[in-house]
C-alpha cells in the first residue's frame, strides 16, 4: 500500500474510533475498549511472533505484571493513572528482562514451553500470595482518578466515555510505535533473525540480545494493555497471567494474519466480536470457539488479512489465476 493511502486509511479509522462513544451504546463502547486493549496486547506481541519468529506462551504474565503493577502503585503510592500506567509498564519490563534472560537462548518449541512455564509461575505466585495479591479474588478497588499534570491540569477519566479516550490515546500510540518499529533498522534486524538466525549472527547481529530486546519490548506492550485493563475493570486478576490468556495474542495474530501490522488488530476485533456473538447464543462458547479455531487452522492459515489480500492480488491479476 502506498504511504498516502495508508495514512489516509489510518486517519479514517482514527476518526471512526473517536466517533464511537458519541454514536454507539454503552455496551458497544465497552466492547470497543476491550478490542483496543487486546489490540495493544496483540500488536506488541506480534513484534515477537510475526516479526522475530518467536512463539511465546507466557505473555499473560507481563499483562498481569502491568495490571498488578498499576494496582499496587495506585493503592500504595499515587492514584495518578499516568504514573500508574508507567509503573505497570515498568513492572512488566522488569519481569520480561528476568524471564527473557532465561528463555532467549532457546527457540521454537523450547522457547514456547519455557515461556509457558514461567508464565504459569507468575500465575501461581499471584494465586498463592493471597495476603499481597488477594489470591483468586484478585486485587480489587483500583480507582480511576483524574489524569493530573502536576496539579496544573486535570482530566477526569471516571466515566466510560472519558476513559474510552484514555485507552484510545494509548492504542493509537502503540499502533504508531509498532508501525515505526516494523519499518526501522531494528525491525529489519528482527526480520533477519526470523528468516535466518544463524546468518544474522554472521552478519554481525548479536541475535540473543536482539531477541531479549524484542521480548522485553513486547512485554512492555503487554504490561500497558494489562494496566489499562486494570483501570477499566477496577481490578487485577490472576487469570490475566494464565496460559489460556497468554494464548489470546497468539490466536488473534494468527486469526488476523502474522505478517502485517493490521493482522493482529483485525484479529482482535474478530475475536472479541466472535466471543460476544457465541456467548449470546450458547453457554458453551469454548466448544464453539475451539471448533472455529480448528477450521481456521486447517483452512485459512494466512489469517483474515492474508487471505483477503491474497484474494485481492488474484483479483487484480486475473491472468495468473
Amino acid at each position: 500500500m502506498k504511504a498516502e493511502a495508508r495514512n489516509a486509511a489510518a486517519a479514517v479509522v482514527l476518526l471512526a474510533l473517536c466517533a464511537v462513544p458519541f454514536l454507539a451504546g454503552k455496551f458497544t463502547v465497552y466492547l470497543a475498549m476491550r478490542i483496543m486493549l487486546l489490540g495493544i496486547f496483540a500488536v506488541g506481541y506480534n513484534l515477537l511472533l510475526g516479526q522475530t519468529g518467536l512463539l511465546s506462551f507466557g505473555h499473560g504474565a507481563f499483562y498481569a505484571a502491568g495490571a498488578y503493577g498499576l494496582g499496587f502503585f495506585g493503592l500504595h503510592v499515587s492514584g495518578n493513572p499516568l504514573f500508574g500506567v508507567a509503573a505497570g509498564v515498568a513492572a512488566a519490563i522488569l519481569l520480561a528482562i528476568l524471564v527473557g534472560y532465561l528463555c532467549v537462548r532457546h527457540t521454537e518449541i523450547y522457547f514456547a514451553m519455557l515461556t509457558l512455564a514461567f508464565g504459569m509461575m507468575v500465575f501461581s505466585l499471584i494465586w498463592n500470595a493471597r495476603e499481597i495479591t488477594g489470591g483468586d479474588d484478585g486485587l480489587i478497588g483500583i480507582m480511576r482518578s483524574p489524569v493530573s499534570f502536576f496539579g496544573l491540569l486535570e482530566i477526569p477519566i471516571g466515566t466510560d466515555r472519558q476513559f474510552y479516550f484514555f485507552i484510545l490515546f494509548f492504542f493509537a500510540l502503540s499502533v504508531w510505535a509498532v508501525h515505526r518499529i516494523r519499518q526501522s533498522p531494528f525491525g529489519l534486524a528482527l526480520a533477519g533473525i526470523r528468516e535466518n538466525a544463524r546468518r544474522s549472527e554472521f552478519a554481525g547481529v548479536p541475535v540473543r540480545r536482539y531477541r531479549l530486546a524484542v521480548f522485553v519490548l513486547s512485554g512492555a506492550f503487554a504490561g500497558l494493555a494489562g494496566s489499562l485493563e486494570a483501570l477499566l475493570e477496577s481490578n487485577a486478576r490472576p487469570f490475566m497471567a494464565h496460559w489460556t490468556h497468554s494464548a489470546e495474542p497468539v490466536l488473534v495474530s494468527l486469526l488476523g494474519g502474522l505478517s502485517s501490522l493490521t493482522g493482529p488488530l483485525v484479529g482482535s476485533a474478530i475475536f472479541i466480536a466472535m466471543r460476544e456473538i457465541i456467548q449470546r447464543f450458547t453457554e458453551n462458547w469454548m466448544l464453539w470457539f475451539g471448533i472455529v479455531l480448528l477450521v481456521i487452522i486447517l483452512g485459512f492459515r494466512g489469517g483474515v488479512v492474508g487471505t483477503l489480500s491474497a484474494f485481492f492480488r488474484k483479483a487484480a491479476a486475473p491472468g495468473e489465476g
Binding site: 515505526r180 518499529i181 519499518q183 526501522s184 533498522p185 531494528f186 525491525g187 534486524a189 530486546a213
Partner: peptide, 10 residues
C-alpha cells in the same frame, strides 16, 4: 545502526 527502533529505514 540496527538498534534504532524508531527511525524509518528509508
Amino acid at each position: 545502526r540496527a538498534w534504532n527502533p524508531i527511525r524509518s529505514l528509508s
